[in-house]
């Protein structure tokens, strides 16, 4: 297990390093001068040169890259170009919204996927299966930010069950915050859940055709017990794979949906930074998002090994 774990952890670090290099290249080396962008086209050459020095952009790229990375390792993300305050101050509060939102949506979408997928598989080719799959096909097609708008119109404006937007802050109490997160999480989870439900269903059906299922039935287990005791765990492998792959999309979705709900999460932080041409903030936020994706996929890799003992053997 430890070899497996170590190997995966190395992959995690390598991927993060790669991601940071890609981000750095795109943001700092490709054409586009932050100083020029900040000051605008009418700025004088001297002003631009001054700002360039001030921001430390005249130093060699390699040096700046290592400064950035070592800074991160020491918990220093640099200073915002626009606000002259540490980037960390800008993103700290945002993380406290985005991360819980992403986790809540993930939980909701997995719950939705398991319920719908298992139910559809158990009623394979019956009317309930066919209509559920039709609905899920629709669910995949709905843009999450539009669903968010519809949810606001119905549950916040019409029924007044949930707030239409904003975020009270965790000091205001746990449940108020969860209540504020429910609608955006549902908007995000519906699309993800619809995709995962389809995967769950087809994976369960696939596993039902395996020989060991017949063995389980020959032991005298009922169809239902076989599903729970033998099929479920085996069928989770593709579901988890897709879950890992979809997490990046889910996170991208939070950026948008937060915006619909006027929540000061990472999404609005990064959008504001783009408007302020605050590239260093964009850089760090994108790296954070990438890191979340990579860590999620690391967890997925570990889950694989928990689910399927064969994988450990392969890797060692």
């Amino acid at each position: 297990m430890s070899v497996f774990f170590a190997k995966r952890f190395m992959t995690l670090l390598a991927t993060l390093l790669g991601a940071s290099i890609v981000i750095f290249i795109v943001m700092e080396i490709l054409p586009g001068d932050p100083a020029l962008v900040i000051l605008g086209v009418e700025a004088t050459d001297e002003a631009i040169a001054l700002l360039t020095t001030e921001l430390g952009l005249d130093r060699p790229a390699l040096e700046r890259y290592f400064d950035w990375i070592f800074g991160i390792l020491q918990g220093d993300l640099g200073n915002s170009y626009a606000y002259k305050v540490p980037v960390w101050e800008l993103v700290e509060g945002a993380l406290k919204i985005t991360v819980p939102l992403a986790i809540l949506s993930m939980i909701l979408s997995v719950a939705l996927a398991l319920v719908v997928g298992l139910y559809a598989a158990a009623n394979h080719n019956k009317a309930s299966d066919i209509s559920l799959m039709g609905i899920s096909q629709l669910g995949i097609s709905i843009p999450n930010f539009w669903l968010a708008v519809l949810l606001i119109l119905y549950f916040a404006v019409n029924l007044r069950w949930f707030p239409a937007g904003g975020f009270p802050g965790w000091d205001e109490g746990f449940w108020v915050c969860i209540k504020a997160l429910i609608l955006p999480a549902v908007a995000l989870a519906t699309v993800q859940g619809a995709i995962l439900a389809r995967i769950t269903r087809s994976s369960v059906l696939e596993v039902f055709r395996e020989d060991f299922v017949r063995t389980a039935r020959a032991k005298g287990l009922s169809q239902r017990s076989t599903l729970w005791l033998h099929v479920l765990r085996n069928s989770m492998i593709p579901v988890i794979t897709v879950m890992g792959l979809q997490f990046a999309n889910l996170l991208a979705g939070t950026v948008i949906v937060e915006n619909v709900f006027h929540m000061p999460g990472l999404g609005s932080t990064v959008l504001k930074a783009i408007n302020n041409r605050d590239t260093i903030v964009v850089e760090n936020v994108v790296l954070m998002l990438a890191a979340m994706v990579v860590v999620t996929n690391f967890i997925v890799d570990i889950l694989y090994a928990v689910i399927d003992p064969r994988l450990k053997a392969h890797d060692i």
Binding site: E210, A218, H230, D308
Partner: peptide, 15 residues
Amino acid sequence: AMIFQEPMTSLNPVH
């Protein structure tokens, strides 16, 4: 009780 042809696939790999 029944024994099947494929011992490779007739047992659940995760238990």
